[in-house]
């Protein structure tokens, strides 16, 4: 599966930050002034992976796992402490113009757009910076406008936009030059459900139309399940898992959730069938059972209980990922 002409090649990439550290209080502050103590924070440790053309890969891990640091290295913002990476054949932190013209990095909160002027003014600046012809610029902007429904948003000063509106304009600014590789750090953070869904649909469509390679981090599992067939998990800076989402589910959480509604809400002890789980929809009671025992247990339930309705589901992806982090 992995080939040397893949757009993203990462080989034992590591980044260690030196962080000044001191106790609280005046005395400690004074001591810190004269003799500063530094702590090595190993944000990323020997991470290796490859991503092929057109793949959308979810990059997951708890806060502080090293996801953003890795993305910043791959986008050329940070120099690694050790290891190497190639993105579209270039070493990112050399920051060659050709490389920068082919990639983009979207960081949830941060703005490419000048705060006090309408987004369209910043777009025009990017047209010049990325050397886009008038024809290319107009057609790409039209396409982005149609996909993201930018409309009049582009002509309002950016500071007067809501978070969701701003995010849409940020995405448009980041994609005007039709990058071949997209690094997205929490592209849907802080957005309402419908904006999240719209941005997800947009990314999928962008990937389909342009064949762009996308590496994205998100804390919203809906982003991951909607977009990514493959995920990479890192924790404490180390790579923990690299593979398919369904495969992870099978490996980490080889169980299913059976939900039952009993006629007239009859009392029954469900714990004999499996582990009780809270949070079924519509008052449905749930038990967790091993995947290979589902048939046997549902048969027993149907035979012994006054069952009104019965469902069998995969465990929620949040649970799977959380377990993967803990392993």
């Amino acid at each position: 599966m992995s080939r040397s002409d893949d757009p993203i090649l990462v080989d034992r990439l590591s980044k260690t930050y030196k962080v000044p550290e001191r106790e609280g209080g005046f005395g400690a502050a004074l001591r810190g002034f004269f003799r500063r103590k530094y702590n090595d924070v190993r944000a990323v440790q020997e991470v290796s992976f490859q991503i092929g053309t057109g793949e959308i890969v979810g990059f997951l891990g708890p806060n502080g796992a090293g996801k953003t640091t890795t993305l910043k290295m791959l986008a050329g913002l940070l120099h690694p402490t050790a290891g190497t990476a190639r993105v579209l054949g270039c070493i990112p932190w050399e920051r060659r113009a050709g490389f920068l013209r082919s990639i983009t990095l979207v960081m949830g909160q941060r703005n490419r757009l000048a705060w006090d002027i309408p987004a369209v003014d910043s777009f025009l600046l990017y047209q010049a910076v990325y050397r886009l012809s008038d024809a290319d610029y107009t057609s790409t902007l039209k396409e982005l406008d149609e996909l993201l429904e930018l409309g009049p948003l582009m002509r309002k000063p950016v500071r007067n936009l809501s978070l969701g509106e701003r995010m849409k304009c940020e995405l448009a600014a980041a994609l005007l030059h039709r990058p071949k590789v997209l690094f997205l750090d929490e592209p849907t953070i802080g957005l309402d459900i419908s904006s999240q869904a719209r941005i997800r649909a947009f990314l999928k469509e962008y990937n389909r139309r342009t064949g762009a390679t996308i590496l994205l981090t998100s804390h919203y599992m809906a982003d991951v399940t909607a977009l990514c067939e493959r995920i990479i998990i890192i924790h404490h800076g180390r790579l923990k898992y690299d593979g398919g989402l369904t495969e992870l589910s099978r490996r980490i959480a080889p169980f299913k959730i059976i939900g039952v509604d009993l006629i007239d809400n009859a009392e029954a002890d469900l714990s004999v069938y499996g582990t009780l789980v809270n949070g079924g929809e519509g008052g449905k009671r749930q038990v967790q059972v091993r995947a290979d025992q589902v048939a046997q247990i549902t048969a027993a339930m149907l035979a012994n209980l006054p069952v009104l309705d019965l469902t069998v589901e995969d465990p929620p992806i949040e649970v799977v990922i959380e377990r993967a982090f803990q392993e």
């Binding site: 013209r101 990639i103 983009t104 941060r110 910076v129």
Partner: peptide, 17 residues
């Protein structure tokens, strides 16, 4: 505060432009 990152992503020198 790290806002330089946005400018560093552009294919031109942030200071000289």
């Amino acid at each position: 505060d790290g806002t330089l990152s946005g400018e560093l992503l552009l294919p031109v020198h942030p200071v000289l432009t």
